[in-house]
């Protein structure tokens, strides 16, 4: 009380800050709590049956499609992302014009909304290249989407490797390529991995970019040119149809757990690097 009288503005500001913190925490608890409380009771074995039909509303095919989609997208975006980071940190000269062009391109890519990616993927892969709604079209679209993320995190990881590593390697007579692959890259692996796992999280959570590229067929695909829905698209279809609201809750729980696990893993890895570096 004495504080309020002495300095009302200070007190008011403090209350404001605390209120915001409480609000943010409440929002987090509310979202997670509500979905878990509503969803966990509806997680049944039938939800995990191999084939999807309208009685079991199984998420298993969508789950497997998500795994395939993630693997493909990483295969497509991983090597270019990491190699590009190697070019930017180990090879390019300072002030090289290519660096600034690449950086602007990556920044532009990371700002593009996923629906624009989806439309672009649909125009290029589905229509222009005649792939139709297919896993491959979806994977290529997502690969472009996660490319800037992998580039940036890999670059940060490579930059975090102490220059003494490079100097030591050069001092022992190793060439640039040997130094990059045997010395710098191994030291940067945890950071690069953290970025890749973050990218996995984005792939798993993505919907808008997939609806018009990979389509919404709820089956495990026969080949790369068949349409397949991932878990997020499955989730969207369920809540859009509005017929299976309980299963939608349960699917939301599975999706949430998956994404939270992925992000926590990534943070743990990233945390480990900063600790070892310090």
């Amino acid at each position: 009380m004495k504080n309020i009288l002495r300095d009302p503005l200070s007190f008011f500001l403090r209350v404001l800050v605390y209120a915001a913190a409480v609000l943010t925490s409440a929002v987090i608890v509310c979202i997670l709590g509500y979905i878990f409380v509503k969803g966990v009771p509806h997680i049944t074995p039938s939800l995990f049956e191999w084939k999807y039909n309208s009685t079991n509303v199984s998420l298993m095919p969508a789950f497997i499609n998500t795994l395939i989609m993630t693997a493909l997208a990483l295969l497509l975006a991983g090597p270019p992302g990491v190699f590009s980071a190697i070019f930017m940190t180990e090879y390019a000269r300072r002030g090289n014009r290519i660096i600034s062009v690449v950086r602007i391109a990556a920044e532009t890519l990371s700002g593009i909304p996923s629906i624009v990616y989806g439309l672009f993927g649909s125009l290029l892969f589905v229509v222009y290249l005649h792939w139709g709604y297919s896993i491959l079209a979806g994977a290529f679209t997502l690969a472009i989407m996660i490319l800037p993320l992998i580039m940036r995190t890999s670059e940060e990881a490579l930059l975090a490797v102490s220059d003494s590593f490079r100097e030591g390697s050069f001092g022992l007579g190793a060439g640039r390529l040997r130094t990059v692959f045997l010395i710098v890259l191994p030291a940067a692996v945890p950071g690069i991995l953290a970025g890749i796992i973050l990218a996995v999280g984005r792939v798993v959570g993505e919907t808008a970019a997939l609806i018009f590229t990979a389509g919404t067929v709820a089956r495990i695909p026969a080949d790369l040119f068949s349409s397949a829905r991932t878990l997020s698209v499955h989730m969207y279809s369920l809540s859009n149809e509005g017929l299976y609201i309980n299963q939608a809750y349960a699917t939301a729980v599975v999706l949430l757990l998956l994404v939270v696990a992925i992000n926590t893993f990534s943070q743990a890895l990233a945390g480990r690097i900063t600790k070892t570096e310090l």
Binding site: T207, M235, Y249, A252, N263
Partner: peptide, 23 residues
Amino acid sequence: LSPAVSLLAGIPSVVYGFFGLVL
């Protein structure tokens, strides 16, 4: 609190939409 906030960043937008729709 800091990890909790970054957890919020990881939640897929369909889940947000669904949460908005049902609550």
